[in-house]
Design a protein around this nucleic acid. Structure first.
Lengths: 343, 343
DNA sequence: CGTAATTATCGAACCGGTTCGATAAATGGT
DNA sequence: ACCATTTATCGAACCGGTTCGATAATTACG
């Protein structure tokens, strides 16, 4: 019901409180520099007029603002939405607004958005990188923006990073499958130009080797984090006469592709083929069969990224070295994995 | 690789092109008002210096900018992410940036965000309304922001609206079920304080009546667009001795709750109970059983909302009356519905 | 060719704050 | 009570554009 008083300005408040415009400014931006009496007078006048400092003017003068950017690679995957939602909430709660963009996996668009952010005086952003080339990383480094990378770490960019412990995820899945008696374990990999893709692949290799096994080349398919590609890759693996008894996939989309492939080949899951994946699927409890997976604590991860970002912004960590955290995934056993001997 | 020239200003360009600062401004904002010669000289100088007008300064002076807002009720539902992604893309393609917020169904937060938007000179926003009370609508009307409502229409707010043809959706579902021989059709409704909730309920009633049937009170449950509430509501309906043979649910979350209820009661779907819903479920083809549903053309809807919004912003439609569009849903038949006599 | 009507360019004021150096007021020490 | 500090307030300049009224340069035309 409050009538939006059309734009009270600092000068108005100054007049009505009998002080200089600059004092009004101080009363808001550095209250301790103004005597208790006048501060109260100013604040009262401001409240009466519904005055609040104009953030655009502030930003012009100071080159700062209360906006953080988020650059996502993808919003079609529910993961992106979840990250955005949590990061947004965290940021909003501390008084920051969020400007979002989605690059649709196009590194060039990432860089365009970075440029826009700079123009808007946005000084910090969470980025799910779409690229990893030298010039891409170079452009990000050259930018005046402080980044927190999410999901895919960029080697060569000195910034905070929040991600998943991919190696641990693979270890959980491998151990689970090995315990069920599987020996021929295949993999539909993600995008190997991205940190998470190679980490997951390397982690898988390592975990298999710890179990006295190895990832055979013929059991390795390339899904590119794309459902269609994953479908084809899985199809190829599952058509072999000595097909793997279990498939580990690199993320949710990849798993969906693999499941579709199994179904189309009339392979029953888990009786004929076990499938386990990193990453989760929304409403996974209704998917049939429910997926065994290494779940990411998305909420915690996104909140961490937002918090770190704003810490940097507010300068508490000017000199501190880049931080790096990998959250531990959690093994959720579903119906998609079973003992190798038909259980 | 372009070295980010630290901030060339209009004054710099003016000097290097031998003109006044105001002429530089004109060269960018109203090129036709500057002679071809000087315009070229200015543009060259600008290009050489990597100059681009500072949007913050522009916004301070003009009270305008190239930012649109999006206020979502929810980002945990994949629907929100899809809408955001599409709207974002549309906006970005026309040179607009997007500021997002998520109110988590709290009308008060909606209004806070509106206030922030105003301060930031954002003049237009897409809103998935979280509330519908008089004061809520009043506050939106009083705001200087042009809205496009998405999903839930607000009666009393004169603005463009983009939504789904909910009545048609219900008609599709009812006809499908009636054709399968169902006569006892139950409903788990959504949030009846929201337009879409009542539209869907009314649409259902109407469609049933067209088929010579009626919605009996005992077959009506209230799901509030919440999974838990829907679960409980469905449980109650399905426990009746003369339980409905088919259930229509108000949206995806509601359907999930209903399916869980059926499963927990050891009712087989579709043999014992058919379930159909408005709204879709991501990766629905893997859910078991696949859901019969009235699918929303989310991409088209979101693109339309973004386009309309920006049209308003750019003033082509100053005087035109509010527009209203309801996109037709499409019936997707899955495995969750079957003939009433055990098929 | 001279004057009227256009068109191009300029300078100054302004948007609404912040910040700095200077002045005024309050406080402290002896 | 007197001077040295410290603290509070002020005025002016500035951030980087836009916009308006005024002047200068063109063009039109009788």
């Amino acid at each position: 019901m409050a009538i939006i008083s059309s734009r009270a300005t600092a000068a108005d408040i100054a007049k009505s409180a009998g002080v200089a415009k600059s004092t009004v400014s101080l009363a808001f931006s550095a209250p301790e520099r103004v005597s208790a009496k006048t501060r109260e007078r100013i604040l009262n006048a401001a409240a009466a007029a519904g005055y609040t400092p104009n953030p655009v003017a502030q930003s012009l003068k100071t080159g700062r603002n209360n906006i953080v950017g988020i650059i996502l690679a993808d919003l079609t995957n529910p993961h992106g939405g979840a990250v955005l939602g949590q990061a947004q909430q965290t940021a909003n709660d501390i008084g920051y607004m969020v400007m979002t963009t989605t690059a649709s996996h196009d590194p060039k668009r990432d860089l365009e958005f970075v440029r826009k952010f700079e123009q808007l005086n946005i000084r910090a952003a969470i980025i799910m990188p779409s690229g990893s080339s030298d010039e891409y990383v170079g452009a990000l480094s050259a930018s005046s923006i402080r980044f927190v990378t999410y999901g895919h770490k960029l080697s060569g960019l000195a910034c905070d990073h929040v991600g998943l412990d991919n190696r641990m995820g693979m270890e959980l899945l491998v151990r689970h499958l090995v315990d069920l008696g599987h020996r021929r374990i295949g993999h539909v990999a993600g995008n190997l130009r991205q940190w998470s893709g190679t980490e997951r692949l390397d982690g898988l290799r390592e975990s298999l080797s710890d179990a006295g096994l190895a990832l055979e080349d013929k059991y390795l398919g390339f899904g590119e984090y794309d459902e269609e590609a994953s479908y084809r890759a899985a199809l190829k693996l599952l058509r072999k006469k000595d097909r793997p008894t279990a498939l580990i996939t690199a993320n949710n989309v990849t798993a969906i592709g693999a499941l579709r492939a199994a179904r189309d080949l009339k392979l029953r899951c888990p009786e004929d083929i076990s499938v386990a994946t990193i990453d989760e699927v929304p409403w996974s409890e209704l998917i049939s069969p429910t997926l065994t997976h290494a779940a990411q604590p998305i909420g915690d991860m996104a909140a961490c990224a937002a918090t770190w970002l704003i810490e940097r912004l507010e300068g508490q960590n000017k000199t501190e070295l880049p931080r790096f955290i990998e959250f531990p995934p959690k093994l959720i056993v579903g119906q998609s994995t079973a003992s190798v001997d038909g259980h």
